[in-house]
Design a binder for these strands. Structure first.
Lengths: 198, 198
DNA sequence: GATAAAACTTGACAGCGTCAAGATACATTC
DNA sequence: GAATGTATCTTGACGCTGTCAAGTTTTATC
């Protein structure tokens, strides 16, 4: 049993979790360094003992986001035998993650972290999520044909479609009801059907 | 010939243009009310004579962005007789606009303005840009079939793909060189080919 | 048990959006 | 053409932000 002490013990992890709480509860705009510190019950400058600056903390939170995205996708594809069904399920997982945690999704794909060399761990996890999609597409296509560049292009097309749909839903530019559909999964299902290899 | 005076004359328009300048030169993060005022050569609170708050100014700038997006698309589709070629051209215009003015594109689709009832003129212009795509898709499909809901879904799929690709390029998650392509247009061309009606 | 290092606090700074109060220019009316 | 009213713009201030400098407290090391 640990009592309240001057030293927190595991503040770094606590700050990341506080950030995630704020993102979910109050949105991206409310994710200030000071708010995270308050949420964790420490002074405004305490985070500087564990992160060089605000961006470093946000990068760590974004990395946790990509890990969750991976979890959503693998969870959705789990136990599905057909490779094509797995790809569609991953698409649903991707979009469901985005709509479940819109603020986190926006942080992850925001303009802050597009330099892979700046936050290496973040870009590694981000690359892993992309590789999941690429691998599934590869297994889908290999059966038919095996052009390397074509595989990459189809992956980009699929990613674009799913990511674009996720963005439009997150920013409330569209919603399932417009198309007489009850949930996100049904919408993803319909939209993804328009994607075909020649 | 007008000399420098206490009254600016056309500050409202000047503020919008100053904002666009800052967006293009310094990016979205630098688009502060005070920076816009400085750029226009007025005091920090002068904008409040013409806009209720910062968001109202940004909404007007975003509206100008949607108008430019429309211009990019119609300019790209101009003089093309085949309806299918026009749709592809519009896709190229859409993505080229996004990569030409990434900060403006991010502002337009940011989380700030997803309530259509709050900034009516903005949502009207935004809806016009969407309607351009919808109309072109409609003319593309009508030739084949005429299911209303199907048309809407295909429009969403096309929009998602193009918008997603634009986002990924803007946030530098991918680039044409990865696929041995020299420019954005070629990449859009390749990606869009994976979109098909049944 | 002394000393060094790590973790955390307090206090401060400039820049931000916004408000209140005042100054200036323009428009209208007589 | 002078007076008045209104729109436009400025100055000064508030609390918020990220971040720095300096100091305090805890833990680790010898």
């Amino acid at each position: 049993m640990k009592t309240k002490s001057y030293h927190h013990g595991n503040l770094k992890q606590a700050l990341v979790e506080a950030g995630l709480t704020i993102l979910e509860r109050d949105g991206l705009a409310a994710l200030t360094l000071r708010a995270v510190a308050r949420e964790a019950g420490v002074s405004q400058t305490a985070p500087y003992s564990h992160f060089t600056d605000k961006r470093a903390l946000l990068a760590t939170i974004a990395q946790e986001g990509f890990q969750r995205l991976i979890d959503y996708m693998s969870c959705a594809a789990k136990d599905l035998p057909h490779e094509n069904a797995r790809l569609v399920a991953m698409a649903k997982g991707y979009v469901r993650f985005a709509t479940d945690q819109p603020a986190l999704f926006r942080l992850m794909f925001g303009p802050e972290f597009n330099d892979p060399s700046e936050f290496v761990e973040l870009s590694t996890t981000s690359a892993n999520s992309y590789k999941m999609i690429l691998d599934s597409v590869r297994r889908n296509i290999e059966i038919k044909d095996g052009d390397q560049n074509q595989t990459g292009l189809f992956t980009l097309a699929a990613w674009s479609t799913v990511h674009g749909l996720a963005c439009l839903l997150v920013d409330e530019r569209t919603k399932p009801e417009v198309f007489h559909l009850r949930d996100i999964d049904s919408l993803v299902d319909k939209v993804v059907r328009f994607l075909k290899l020649e």
